[in-house]
């Protein structure tokens, strides 16, 4: 039986092989920037926020 062995060259487009869609790049960098913000805002050692403190706040009301 003839096996259909793969020709790797035919798997990937040539002319668009180095393209990165702009929308996707915005997403990629946007998430990294947001991640830095979130890390700073929600790490007790940096911002002082903690889930326990947030709870104490919530029951004072």
């Amino acid at each position: 039986m003839a096996e259909d062995l793969d020709n790797i060259a035919s798997f990937e487009a040539k002319e668009t092989s180095r393209k990165l869609p702009v929308g996707w790049l915005i997403l990629f960098w946007g998430l990294i920037i947001w991640g830095i913000y979130y890390f700073v805002a929600y790490t007790p050692a940096i911002s002082g926020w903690s889930q326990e403190k947030a709870y104490e706040e919530s029951i004072k009301k």
């Binding site: 889930q51 326990e52 947030a54 709870y55 919530s58 029951i59």
Partner: peptide, 12 residues
């Protein structure tokens, strides 16, 4: 540590 959850179940 959420208000209504502590009310329902007790100390977080």
């Amino acid at each position: 540590p959420l208000k209504t959850e502590v009310m329902r179940y007790g100390e977080y």
